[in-house]
Design a binder for these strands. Structure first.
Length: 272
DNA sequence: AACCAGGCGCATA
DNA sequence: TATGCGCATGGT
């Protein structure tokens, strides 16, 4: 990976397996917006603007090398060797098709709290409405960073609120789950560092202690928020994939990064 | 064990 | 334009 400074911007040359359009609009994150070919969001409390120049080149606007090294490199999972993983996936015909068609999806490493909160909201829900609820959550309780951008509110901030405070979100029965999660996280009853640094089985048993977090939401948190590539969220689309294509289970070549395989298969199956 | 709890996109009537 | 369906979890 080569990094070049261009005034205040950072030009990053990757291995080519990075497609922002696929990555930022495949149901794993809900806050990115594309405006004039530039993808924008607030991540880790900072506004980020990034553009795909070509297959190998990303341009990060107003970005320091320090922020890229400390935040964005990990966020976009750029340290992982996707070439090697996707080559291994080619031992399976369906994974071959999915990875060729949607080459460049990367599994993001989002902030644990944002991932947890987002996937609690995602349950029994569709993507347009998930985005709306999260947007209202940030507008109401996040920090105003100007130009219509808001940070994702902290667990501590949410923990200080009541169900009535959350009414403007129109999140329905999920509001009580959001509060329970915020309280358990703010009071360190759920220890993010421990989950991050432990085996996936520990994270599974911890996260389902939160009301509104079942197996599916827990797997999403572990995959997108705790960098567990071996997490495997099974939603209705993945259930279809499993019954239609893999009645005997996930092919061996997908291990151990079955979460990455899942992301390609999910997007592929949804866009048939 | 079957149903409901917000609400909305989506497919079908 | 109206109607029903799906959605992931917990509680009844």
């Amino acid at each position: 990976m080569k990094i070049m400074k261009e005034n205040n911007n950072l030009s990053v040359f990757t291995d080519g397996c990075v497609n922002l359009d696929y990555t930022l609009d495949c149901g794993q994150s809900f806050r990115w917006k594309k405006e004039n070919d530039v993808w924008q969001a607030v991540v880790c409390g900072k506004k980020i603007s990034v553009r795909q120049i070509d297959e190998n080149n990303l341009l990060f606007y107003d970005t320091t090398e320090e922020d890229f090294e400390n935040l964005w490199k990990n966020y976009f999972d750029l340290e992982r060797n996707y070439t090697e993983i996707l080559n291994r996936f080619k031992n399976d015909p369906y994974l071959t098709e999915a990875t060729e068609k949607y080459y460049g999806i990367r599994v993001l490493n989002q902030e644990p709290w944002e991932a947890l909160c987002s996937f609690i909201i995602s349950q029994n829900n569709n993507i347009p409405r998930i985005k709306g609820i999260i947007e209202r959550l940030c507008e109401n309780f996040g920090d105003d960073l100007g130009d219509g951008f808001f940070s994702f509110p902290s667990a501590e901030k949410i923990a200080s609120l009541t169900i009535e405070d959350l009414a403007p979100l129109r999140s329905g029965f999920r509001a009580k789950y959001i509060l329970d999660a915020a309280k358990k996280v703010a009071e360190k009853e759920i220890d993010f560092d421990a989950i991050y640094n432990s085996d996936i089985s520990f994270g599974r048993s911890e996260l389902i202690k939160i009301k509104g977090v079942g197996p599916k939401v827990a797997e999403c948190c572990l995959l997108y928020g705790f960098k567990k590539a071996e997490a495997f969220p099974v939603d209705v689309w993945v259930k279809r994939i499993m019954s239609e294509l893999y009645p005997d289970g996930i092919p061996a070549c997908a291990y151990p990064e079955i979460g990455i395989a899942q992301q390609y298969l999910f997007h592929w199956r949804r866009n048939v």
